[in-house]
Every structure is written in C-alpha cells, then in structure tokens.
Simulated assay, not measured.
Amino acid sequence: MKLRFLGKNSTPGDSPTLYASDRDTYVIQGWKVYANDLLMQLDVPAGQTVIEVPTELFEHLTKDGHENGEIKQFTDPIMILTEQGTCVLQGPEMHDAEALSQMRMPDYETCIEVPKSSIAALLEETSGPDHQR
C-alpha cells in the first residue's frame, strides 16, 4: 500500500497524522486509547483498535479534494467526541508492512484504515436529530 501524506497535528512527542492510500482509504494515525472509561463505552471486535486524534486533524482532508475538513456528523468510525475536543475512532488496525514503513510512529500510537467514503460522510450536513454521541 502506498500512502500520501495529507497532514498532521503535531506538538513535541505527539503526531496524529492523516494519509490517503492507493486503496481508496484513509489511514489515520493517533494515540492508542487505554482509558477504561472510554473503552467501556465501546464494543471493540477482534482485529480492530481504538485511537484518539484532535478534531482539527480532519482539516487536512482539503488536500484530498474535500471542500473543507469540518466534521459535521459524529458517527462511525468516530465513536466518541471527548470534552477535550478530540475524537475517539474505532477501526481495523493497520498491519500493512509497506505502509507502516512509510510512517514514523511512536510506541504509544497506532493507526487504523477506513474507507474514504466513511470519512467523507462525516463532512456532510444532516437534517434531523443531533447525531453526537
């Protein structure tokens, strides 16, 4: 899998990063979630993992042809919006050796791979009830 870097939200020691892949997916690198209070709210199937990223990370979607990167729906793969303004995402943990070799990832981070369509859907306005979890 080949990755195209879209952007990162970085402070010293932290590096949530967004990539577009050649498989019509996004690879989202974020902090591993260990907090029991968050994990207890989720049903995480085998092969999936949970990460946390700043909501601002999605602003980099403009570099992949989206008009803006403002999240308007908080639905799968976003599972929780925290009080700190971060998103908790759940998805298949990425193990592709070629892709991982293109990334710099500290031990306390991991990445998930999600279809571009599921991320694009988060950018669309909805009418009706509030979808925040």
Rank of each mutant, 00 (worst) to 15 (best):
T11V: 12
P12R: 00
G13E: 08
I28A: 00
R4N: 12
K8M: 15
L18K: 03
P12Y: 05
W31T: 08
W31I: 10
G13Q: 11
W31R: 13
P16S: 07
R4Q: 13
F5Q: 09
M40P: 07
K8A: 15
L38V: 14
N36V: 07
D14T: 13
S21M: 06
T17W: 04
L39M: 13
L3G: 02
T17D: 05
T11S: 15
Y34Q: 09
Y34I: 08
V33D: 05
L38H: 11
D14F: 02
D37W: 14
S10A: 15
R23I: 01
K32A: 01
L18T: 03
Y34L: 07
L18C: 09
L39A: 10
A35E: 15
N9E: 11
D24V: 11
D22Q: 10
M40V: 10
G30Y: 02
D22T: 07
Y19F: 15
P16T: 09
K32R: 06
T25R: 02
P16Q: 08
P16W: 02
F5E: 12
S10I: 14
L3A: 04
S21I: 04
S10P: 04
K8H: 10
Q29C: 12
Y26M: 03
L39W: 03
L6Y: 04
P16H: 06
Q29V: 15
T25V: 03
D24M: 12
S10T: 14
T17F: 03
V27R: 09
A20Y: 00
L39D: 11
P16E: 05
G7F: 08
L3E: 03
D37G: 08
D37A: 11
D22M: 08
K32L: 03
T17Y: 04
N36L: 09
N9P: 07
S21P: 15
R4F: 05
L6F: 07
K32G: 00
T17M: 06
K32D: 02
D37Y: 15
T17E: 03
